[in-house]
Write a protein that binds this DNA or RNA. Structure first.
Lengths: 219, 219, 219, 219
DNA sequence: GATGAATGAGTTTTCATTCAT
DNA sequence: AATGAATGAAAACTCATTCAT
């Protein structure tokens, strides 16, 4: 009872270490020291360092999928675009450590592919995002672009803003950013009224092009 | 004398290893084997594995600054925006290994800040980019936004596209992407003709807001 | 559990190695082999080879301070002088390995000054010796000399004898040496009876002169 | 002609390094940096690090033998004792770096025994010192002690003083020390006038006892 | 005389992991 | 659940020395 939740204490310490020193720059000894737990305890709760990181990833993905991929069910394209920008930025700021950790992990975990539970969460998250992007691509109010470009236009600015922010280089306040980036994303995506009908079929064609998928990395 | 340029051979081998196995996944032995140089030679030219990575970063930054930050001297805002998008994507595709390596390194090198030569290159690169963004922010044809948001709108989509591409998840061809993302970035940034004069002063004010800068990380 | 006191076993093995091959001539592998412990165990208990050496120094200093700096509480100057000579030689012979190691280390450990635990032991040992020397310097039966010269006269011969002995160049038996060097040290120090009163104040003055102290080296 | 005497420059740099970091703590690279010479030059003039150290030792021994072992040809025992103390301290202070280096080397160079030129210098120095000590031991004015104890009484205090001085812990000025230690050494050695004749034969016997000699170390 | 790239065996050190208590 | 001693393979790094120029 002295330590109420060793497992969570270890997870928190690991996250701090990973953020401060990177995954590979962090040793079990670092986590041991920061958490105050013993080596034995860490191995009692987790299968090793990688398992710890994967647990954090799973937690992060679950949280992200629930918050950042939620759009109004029957919203207009503009509402959907704004909801994605808002959701992305809001979640990242509310879960800053996890978000930073996931940005770090993006290029670092080819082994993640072996963890089926992680794949499940990842697939689900990615698919729900892709479904939304596809629906946007099919809208007659939206430029006829492939979903990957639509993703880049809607989420790219938000991600770039968060990335700069993570490096301490963003000057704007989150509210400003949400408003401005949401508005701009919609301007980038929307089709001028007079052009809407003519191009709609092309949009459908572009949207149907299959996405190549080489590997499952974290995030 | 048999090997004319050992230093460069080592650098090339290291880059290949880092991309294939990650920084920490790469051992000096790996680099030794791939380069054909001896352990001693590697340490003769570099102070260690980290120094090698920093040398690669410096090379990448130098190359990037020369190619990706070049805009027409007296171009219109639209031309400038398109040039930045084109430059970013073109350089990244032409220097794919270096670009991938730099994306990897973004969060991994807190020690980079101590390398004065790296700081110099970084400062220069960053400053020339910032100068361009500031000039955009001051234009009466552009929405009155802070430079960090302008950066996010102009380069965020391109970076997101490249990131997806690096993960094998981009479906669109580079030429399509350059055209579409350049056009969209301009749409996101431009001010409707009838609003231009009224808001120009505000744009100037926003553009003058100083960017907080906490640390110099890679990229 | 099979090995009850791994730490001490490692220390003992290290001492043997250092004496046989010198500090830098000894590799961790040598200590590993001689102690039977694993590399990991050595690093579990000590931070490295140097830390091992410092631990030995600390042990030696502790032992030396307890044995070699003990003089009769209310002894005459002569008794005190003889006790210091006897204590020095007796301890050195009874703890020959440690003593030899400490002689070796005298000039080799500029880093020792950073180890606070070592400093504590050193300070204590040195201070108790200095206190005795100062009390001698103040005695009216003793030549009016600064404490550093008194130290040289009392302990210098004993140390020279031990040093020659460590090199295998001493011919005399310890008992002879203790007797002869104790007697001679007293003769060197004592003030002829007829001169005692006249010079006493000067002795006090000399004894009060502060000792410059630049650094704390071993011993 | 730009560099007048590379060999000597290297020797000087090596001495500084050895004093600052110890023999084994000094790498050829250290000497290269401090001397400004190239690796190749160092190996052009010396056979390696050890050869460098031996060259310094030989230089030191030669210098020491000429200065510290010179006593008046037909001097009284007292004059001889004072001359040895004076010579030892004077030489050490005039050649401080070399003297410090030789104190360091005392325990560190079992390999020195293979260098015949060094042995020659050492033998000569040691023998001339021993001859003087033997002559003292035979004098009827001197206590009947073995030469090793006589050496300890005559030179021990001077060496102890120099050692403390080398550590920055000596308070007395050299002139004071020379006078006081010379006087005291003589008091420690001299036989009271009334005891001189009776004990002379014993002194002769003691002086004839052979000195065990196990190894030839430096100094 | 002078240079510095090249070598590679040997050394120190790290660290994930196991396991008896 | 918790502990921390023990492990040893694998890694980083050192450094005296050689040699072509």
């Amino acid at each position: 009872m002295a330590r109420p939740n060793t497992r969570q204490i270890i997870l928190d310490a690991a996250l701090e270490c990973f953020l401060a020193q990177g995954f590979t720059g962090t040793s079990i000894a670092d986590i041991r020291v920061r958490s105050g737990a013993s080596t034995g305890s860490i191995y009692h709760f987790f299968d090793g360092k990688e398992d710890l990181a994967l647990a954090l990833c799973a937690e992060g993905l679950r949280s992200w999928a629930q918050a950042a991929c939620v759009v109004p069910a029957n919203g207009t394209p503009e509402q959907i675009v704004r909801a994605m920008v808002t959701g992305t930025i809001t979640w990242a700021l509310a879960n800053e450590p996890l978000h930073r950790f996931m940005m770090q992990s993006e290029f670092l975990a080819p082994t993640a592919a072996q963890r089926s539970d992680l794949i499940d969460v990842m697939m689900e998250a990615r698919l729900s995002q892709e479904r939304i992007l596809r629906s946007l691509a099919l809208s007659s109010q939206v430029r006829p672009l492939a979903p990957d470009l639509i993703r880049a236009l809607v989420l790219g600015p938000a991600e770039a803003y968060l990335r700069e922010r993570a490096h301490g280089r963003a000057a704007s306040l989150p509210e400003e950013a949400i408003a401005a980036l949401g508005e701009a994303a919609w301007q980038a995506l929307r089709l001028p009224d007079d052009a809407q009908h003519a191009l709609a079929p092309a949009a459908a064609a572009a949207g149907a092009r299959p996405v190549r998928r080489r590997s499952f990395d974290l995030v």
